[in-house]
């Protein structure tokens, strides 16, 4: 599979053309901003999409996405080419998202929940953004999928997005996240099960063809 992305026929996917990319990467290693700009053009949307779904705040997502490219630019000489640029960028993005989430978790003081929310049926909601009634009214399946993904744990979400959204192979995900391939597969399976559970009303209602 080959991914052709961005401008100027740039192909920097998992199995990209070696010659064209090698030249561009070499320029990036020499801190050529123009060459790096092509890389940003090719990946900004995908990296932002990944980061946006990994973080709750859009503002944070914009900021972290910039940080991903700045880190990549600063440390491009460390990119050894063993993995694809895409895998490398998503690894940086994943690490920054995890860092940002940890910082956010540290800064949030645990608030006691109101007594009325202690019933089991309300606690089944894994994320406050998951509002089936509103979603049903809007009829937005994509929104439902987005919210179901947002309701997953970071471990499931990252694997699901990298595999099903970004077409990364099991090996590439394992490399990017520092996990065994078997763990990647089991997380992917559980993530899809979670998604399926969340989308049950839509699946039963025949909204998914």
């Amino acid at each position: 599979m080959e991914l052709r992305l961005g401008v100027n026929g740039l192909s920097l996917g998992m199995r990209a053309e070696p010659n064209a990319d090698a030249h561009l990467l070499e320029r990036c290693r020499r801190h050529d901003r123009e060459a790096f700009g092509q890389l940003v053009d090719a990946y900004q949307g995908r990296v932002f999409g990944f980061v946006r779904r990994m973080l709750p705040s859009q503002e944070d997502a914009w900021d972290v996405t910039q940080e991903v490219f700045i880190r990549a630019y600063q440390h491009f000489d460390r990119f050894d080419g063993r993995s694809s640029v895409k895998t490398w960028l998503f690894r940086i993005a994943h690490n920054l998202c995890v860092d940002r989430a940890r910082k956010a978790a540290r800064s949030i003081e645990e608030q006691p929940l109101p007594v009325g929310l202690e019933s089991e049926d309300r606690m089944d909601l894994s994320d406050p953004r998951w509002e089936p009634e509103r979603l049903a009214m809007e009829g937005e399946l994509a929104e439902a999928v987005e919210q179901a993904i947002a309701g997953m744990s970071e471990k499931l979400r990252s694997v699901l997005l990298l595999h099903d959204k970004e077409d990364a192979s099991y090996d590439e995900i394992a490399q990017a996240l520092g996990l065994p391939v078997g763990t990647v597969k089991s997380r992917l399976f559980l993530a899809r099960v979670h998604l399926q559970k969340c989308l049950t009303p839509y699946l039963k209602g025949g909204q998914v063809s």
């Binding site: 900004q44 949307g45 932002f48 914009w62 994509a142 993904i149 959204k165 998604l195 989308l199």
Partner: peptide
């Protein structure tokens, strides 16, 4: 379904 999600462009 996940694949069909649209990425917002910066």
């Amino acid at each position: 379904l996940v694949k069909t999600l649209v990425d917002e462009q910066p």
